[in-house]
Amino acid sequence: MGSRLLNIQRRAAEHGRLRTGYTQGNRPVKSATWVVTSHSEEHVRKAAELWGGTPETWKPLNSTTAQWRVITKASSIEALITPGDPLNQYNELWSAGGCQRRCDGQTELLSRQRCICLAQFGEGWHQQKKGTVCSATSRFNVMLPDLSGMGMWRAETHSFYAASEWGGMVDMVLAGTDGKGFVPVTLRIEPRQVVREGKTKKFPVVVVELRGVTPRQALAGPMSTAMALDPSGTRAVAALEAPRPDYLALAEGALTSDDVRDIWMQAQDAKHVHFKGEDELSKQLMAIAARKDEEAASARKASPVEPDADGVYPAEVVDESSSSTWPAVAQAGSAS
Results as ranks from 00 to 15, higher is better:
residue 2 G to C: 08
residue 4 R to K: 11
residue 7 N to F: 14
residue 9 Q to D: 05
residue 14 E to I: 15
residue 15 H to I: 12
residue 15 H to V: 09
residue 23 T to K: 08
residue 32 A to D: 03
residue 34 W to Q: 04
residue 35 V to C: 01
residue 35 V to M: 03
residue 38 S to L: 09
residue 44 V to K: 02
residue 49 E to F: 02
residue 50 L to Y: 06
residue 56 E to W: 08
residue 60 P to L: 09
residue 68 W to D: 08
residue 78 E to M: 11
residue 80 L to V: 14
residue 81 I to K: 03
residue 84 G to W: 12
residue 93 L to R: 13
residue 94 W to N: 02
residue 95 S to Q: 10
residue 101 R to A: 12
residue 102 R to N: 10
residue 103 C to L: 04
residue 105 G to K: 00
residue 107 T to K: 11
residue 109 L to W: 05
residue 110 L to A: 12
residue 116 I to V: 14
residue 117 C to Q: 08
residue 122 G to E: 07
residue 126 H to K: 01
residue 131 G to A: 09
residue 131 G to N: 11
residue 132 T to K: 11
residue 135 S to L: 06
residue 135 S to D: 11
residue 145 P to L: 04
residue 147 L to R: 06
residue 147 L to H: 02
residue 149 G to W: 00
residue 150 M to C: 14
residue 153 W to E: 07
residue 155 A to Y: 04
residue 156 E to K: 15
residue 159 S to N: 09
residue 160 F to I: 12
residue 161 Y to C: 01
residue 163 A to K: 15
residue 167 G to T: 04
residue 168 G to T: 08
residue 169 M to L: 06
residue 172 M to I: 12
residue 178 D to Y: 03
residue 181 G to A: 07
residue 190 E to N: 07
residue 198 G to W: 14
residue 204 P to T: 07
residue 208 V to C: 13
residue 210 L to A: 06
residue 212 G to F: 08
residue 213 V to H: 02
residue 216 R to T: 05
residue 219 L to P: 09
residue 220 A to S: 07
residue 222 P to I: 04
residue 222 P to W: 01
residue 226 A to T: 10
residue 228 A to L: 02
residue 232 S to R: 00
residue 235 R to A: 02
residue 236 A to S: 05
residue 249 A to R: 04
residue 251 A to G: 03
residue 253 G to I: 04
residue 261 R to A: 13
residue 268 Q to I: 10
residue 269 D to M: 15
residue 269 D to N: 15
residue 273 V to F: 13
residue 274 H to A: 15
residue 275 F to P: 01
residue 278 E to A: 06
residue 278 E to I: 13
residue 283 K to M: 10
residue 286 M to A: 13
residue 302 A to C: 01
residue 305 V to I: 11
residue 310 D to W: 09
residue 311 G to P: 09
residue 314 P to L: 15
residue 315 A to N: 15
residue 316 E to D: 13
residue 323 S to T: 05
residue 324 S to V: 12
residue 325 T to Q: 13
residue 326 W to N: 03
residue 329 V to G: 13
residue 330 A to D: 05
residue 330 A to Y: 05
residue 334 S to Y: 09
residue 335 A to D: 14
residue 335 A to W: 15
residue 336 S to D: 10
